[in-house]
């Protein structure tokens, strides 16, 4: 089944909205971080789909390919893949720091619920 770019954009936007909904409504810190990861996944799908051309070949040079001009070769754009790789690395770093901070907060408060992390006594 062929999927065109617009369908991919819509899918990624729906996943993005699910992530935003999760980040806003959840009270559990781990669930908030999972929602952030969902947002990042949506983004990666969106970025990859911007380089996708319907019915195109992967951007790998093989022996049967005729190199006449760049426009005549039906390949997908490889640049967004590189961008997505960078975005994934950054996303993993952010999530790791988030989990580290969550563990520290859990050690302080013995809960992951953000509503139970009052700080009036600290001021």
């Amino acid at each position: 089944m062929m999927i065109d770019n617009r369908t991919l954009y819509i899918y990624s936007f729906i996943i993005f909205l699910i992530g935003i909904y999760g980040a806003i409504t959840n009270r559990n810190l781990i669930k908030i971080l999972v929602s952030l990861s969902i947002i990042e996944t949506a983004l990666n799908i969106f970025l990859v789909s911007t380089g996708y051309i319907n019915g195109s070949n992967p951007p790998i040079l093989h022996s049967g390919m005729k190199l006449i001009s760049p426009n005549s070769i039906n390949i997908s754009d490889p640049l967004p893949h590189a961008l997505v790789l960078t975005a994934i690395v950054i996303g993993v770093g952010t999530t790791a720091i988030g989990i580290g901070l969550t563990i520290k907060l859990y050690n302080h408060y013995k809960t992951l619920n953000v509503n139970r992390m009052g700080d009036k006594d600290e001021l």
């Binding site: 990042e40 970025l47 640049l79 952010t94 988030g98």
Partner: peptide, 29 residues
Amino acid sequence: KLSIKGSLKYLIITSIGASLYLFGIGFLY
């Protein structure tokens, strides 16, 4: 407690901000 909470809040906000920015870049590209 306060500093870790502050940095976690900052992380959540900037992650969402960065995602929106990347969406904008994707559209532009």
